[in-house]
Amino acid sequence: MPRAGLSRAEVIRAGAALADEAGYANLAMAPLAERLGVRTPSLYKHVEGIADLQQEIAALAMTELADRVRDALQGRSGRDALDAFARAFCSYIADHPGRYTATLGRPTHGPEEDPLVKAGTRLLESTGAVLRDYDLPPEDTTHALRMLRSAFHGFATLSGADGFQWPEQTATALTWMIDFLDRGLRARS
């Protein structure tokens, strides 16, 4: 019998918190069970195993990231939207590094009804909205989408890993990068 009050959603949220705190690579069922105050076998009443838990954390993270980006973009366009996108994307990675890592290279379970696919599509739509104001040629859109994700993923993960030698200039460097990308996107339109 599952612990009273323990649900699949609670197990997933606790797993996501554990991934953020301990690192995604250290996510395991035993420490999750300890965190929740249950024996490890009890978790299998809520998730099929570590792969199921990882997939659900990825869907949760992508949903949260898509929501954060969407909310940041409200009423913004052009360089202002690019700035809002960058800061929302980077702040999510800083706030939830383990969850975000769960989204990388995750397989999907199927078409549109897969929560990971749905959230990823929403994030892609928001990113596309940022690019609409740049009036890029259609053949450049996919490249631009990948460039933005790569740039801000790289910036946020390096920053989170203390990969910059002068951390006091990190905020200035992000603004510089946003300005640089804005000029580059305008030049392509």
Rank of each mutant, 00 (worst) to 15 (best):
R8W: 02
R8V: 09
R8P: 02
A9M: 10
A9I: 07
A9W: 04
A9T: 06
E10Q: 14
E10R: 15
E10M: 15
V11Q: 01
V11I: 06
I12G: 05
R13Q: 06
R13P: 02
A14M: 07
G15V: 05
G15T: 02
G15C: 07
A17K: 12
L18I: 14
A19M: 13
E21N: 13
G23T: 08
G23S: 14
A25Y: 07
N26F: 08
N26L: 14
L27I: 04
A28M: 06
P31R: 03
P31A: 10
P31Y: 02
A33R: 06
E34H: 11
E34W: 07
E34C: 09
R35P: 00
L36P: 01
G37S: 11
V38Q: 10
V38W: 06
T40R: 12
T40Q: 11
T40P: 04
P41K: 11
S42V: 10
L43D: 03
L43Q: 04
L43E: 04
Y44V: 03
V47A: 06
V47S: 01
E48M: 11
G49Q: 07
G49D: 06
G49R: 05
D52V: 05
L53H: 01
Q55K: 12
Q55P: 00
E56R: 14
I57P: 00
A58N: 02
L60F: 00
A61L: 08
M62Y: 04
M62G: 03
M62K: 07
M62E: 08
M62P: 00
T63K: 12
T63G: 01
E64Y: 06
L65R: 07
A66V: 00
D67N: 15
D67C: 13
D67Y: 02
R68H: 05
R70Q: 15
R70P: 03
A72H: 10
L73Q: 08
L73I: 11
Q74R: 14
Q74I: 13
G75H: 08
G75C: 12
G75F: 09
S77V: 15
G78P: 05
G78H: 09
R79Q: 13
R79L: 12
D80Y: 07
